[in-house]
Amino acid sequence: MDVARDRGAVAIDRDECKGCGLCVEACPPRVLRLSAELNRYGYHPAEYLGSGCTACGICYYVCPEPGGITVLRRQVA
């Protein structure tokens, strides 16, 4: 996959994430997963695979935390 051509991207605040996994379940292109690492609270935070995001925003809405997930969309040049 070519990151440069993705419509969107996801940024996850790993210390706000509680590792509930709802975003992983909800993501239509399946580009999120729970990290093998632990964050400072001891959760396995969600992480973006790095490419394939469509900027649909669903992960943002299923996330219970206010700022756990930020969704970005590529601007039309």
Partner: peptide, 11 residues
């Protein structure tokens, strides 16, 4: 990705 803009983020 500098061409990216936030569409959903902390309110």
């Amino acid at each position: 990705a500098p061409a990216m803009a936030v569409i959903h983020g902390r309110s």
